[in-house]
């Protein structure tokens, strides 16, 4: 009788052992799966951010607000009109709600700037909307995890002798065409 009891106990232990190992395997599988999912998710986020940077750059290059127009003709490709850039800066300064209510829908969290390399080194920020958080004491901190920057070489046209520019380098200088680059930084 004792022998039978022991046999039943052994069988029970065996069953519990099998189930235990089964669950351990499931646990390992789950850990592996979720880790894999996490990595895929991060890769996907990076991919999306890169896509977003490309889209934003594309939208900026074709933005009627800053593109070099030529009357009724087609606009000049990859060319930015500095007269319009300065006007846009001024309009956004005077109406900050355009930034939050309108252009945010177009660019989301991003910084967009135009830098002139030749003949004068100068930079213009045309859109600035960084993802920020606020501490209890009211101070702000950067709340983004990733940042993707893209650069695009552009021609810069300024037919107005830098009028409206607070930079001595521009005064009375006939800079019709210069070159520089467009910087688009997107955040996630």
């Amino acid at each position: 009788m004792k022998k039978m009891n022991k046999k039943a106990q052994m069988q029970m232990l065996e069953t519990i052992g099998v189930i235990f190992i089964f669950f351990v395997l499931i646990l390992f599988g789950s850990i592996f799966y979720f880790k894999f999912q996490e990595i895929s998710f991060q890769n996907k986020q990076e991919e999306l951010l890169a896509q977003s940077a490309m889209d934003t750059t594309l939208v900026t290059l074709f933005l009627p607000e800053i593109q070099c127009s030529r009357g009724d003709s087609e606009a000049e490709d990859n060319c930015i009109d500095l007269g319009k850039v300065r006007a846009l800066q001024q309009v956004l300064k005077e109406n900050p709600k355009y930034l939050t209510d309108y252009y945010f829908n177009l660019f989301s969290y991003a910084n967009i700037s135009v830098t002139m390399v030749h003949p004068v080194e100068h930079s213009w920020t045309i859109y600035e909307f960084e993802k920020v958080g606020v501490y209890d004491n009211g101070s702000e901190y950067s709340a983004w995890d990733r940042k993707e920057a893209t650069y695009f070489v552009v021609t810069l046209r300024d037919e107005l002798k830098g009028i409206g520019e607070n930079n001595e380098e521009f005064y009375n200088k006939e800079i019709v065409y210069g070159f520089g680059y467009l910087t688009v930084e997107v955040f996630s």
Binding site: G83, A87, V91, L160
Partner: peptide, 11 residues
């Protein structure tokens, strides 16, 4: 924006 550019153009 064009109104603003016009000011620069006038100047």
């Amino acid at each position: 924006i064009y109104q603003n550019k016009l000011d620069s153009l006038s100047a």
